[in-house]
């Protein structure tokens, strides 16, 4: 595999909900180790695009191709559910906006982190626990809280726990849907810092959906701007944000509050 091969590429994705065209001929490439942010206003189709890329929703037209660790090109919507699930718990990860959707709230923090390990066949309790504890520390959660349930955690801790749970099997590609949504500003900043550190340490490719331009600037290498289900502008983050060309992008950038 050469760095020139995208890890994920989408061609001509279209999806309509009745008369609403949520996706209109969207094509995207993502290279290994790259962080791609999808920005746009509410209803622009960015979350739908993420769901289609991750195989959770089926497009009306278009293909999504994933290149796996062995270098095989896989059709994400044509591989069948068993293969999709295997992919989802090995090479992929998904960080939800609401940690309650991504965590098992009735299971301890250690169990949450260990679930993916056990799903891929880990059967040594001591090893699983040690790995879970290492990951809790890595996301700045006190390892002494390994047996606490996420219900006793703050919002920021839950989100960090969800990140630990997702990254524990060292996925190559992670989808993130508004990972900092609903958190207060200082917690957001620390979380963004944490994500940035982990992503660059592990060399993970990330598709990040956000409406927060500041978060996109901090994390993303490349930016895709969506509006009405179409990609209106695409390019390196700094280029798009410093020199927006499409009128909508100009509006978006100019509407960011200066701190």
């Amino acid at each position: 595999m050469t760095p020139d091969d995208p890890i994920l590429s989408a061609r001509g994705l279209s999806l309509s909900f009745g008369d609403v065209r949520a996706l209109d001929e969207v094509s995207i490439d993502l290279w290994p180790g790259e962080v791609l942010a999808i920005v746009g206003e509410s209803g622009s189709g960015k979350s739908t695009l993420l769901r289609v890329l991750a195989g959770e929703a089926r497009p009306d037209a278009g293909v999504v191709t994933h290149r796996d660790a062995a270098g095989n090109d896989l059709d994400v919507h044509g591989m069948g559910e068993p293969a999709q699930r295997r992919l989802a718990r090995t090479e992929w990860g998904f960080v939800r906006q609401d940690p309650r959707d991504g965590l098992r709230m009735g299971v301890s923090a250690g169990g949450n982190v260990g679930e993916r390990l056990m799903a891929v066949g880990a059967r040594h309790y001591g090893d699983i626990r040690a790995e879970a504890s290492r990951w809790l520390e890595r996301v700045e959660i006190d390892p002494n809280r390994i047996d606490d349930r996420p219900g006793h955690f703050s919002g920021g801790m839950r989100q960090r726990l969800q990140i630990a749970r997702t990254l524990v099997t060292q996925p190559r590609l992670v989808f993130m849907d508004e990972p900092t949504g609903g958190l207060d500003v200082s917690v957001q900043a620390r979380l963004l810092d944490l994500i940035r550190g982990l992503v660059s340490d592990l060399g993970i490719a990330v598709v990040l959906v956000t409406h927060d331009i500041a978060a996109a600037r901090l994390l993303a290498h490349r930016l895709v701007v969506m509006r009405h289900g179409r990609v209106v502008e695409e390019g390196l983050t700094d280029r798009v944000l410093d020199d927006p060309r499409h009128p909508y992008t100009q509006l978006l950038v100019s509407s960011v509050l200066a701190a």
């Binding site: 098992r104 299971v107 301890s108 250690g110 169990g111 260990g114 891929v120």
Partner: peptide, 13 residues
Amino acid sequence: GLMQVKLYEDIAR
């Protein structure tokens, strides 16, 4: 994997 998580919880508790 889910069943194994339950066993993990049993040991942890």
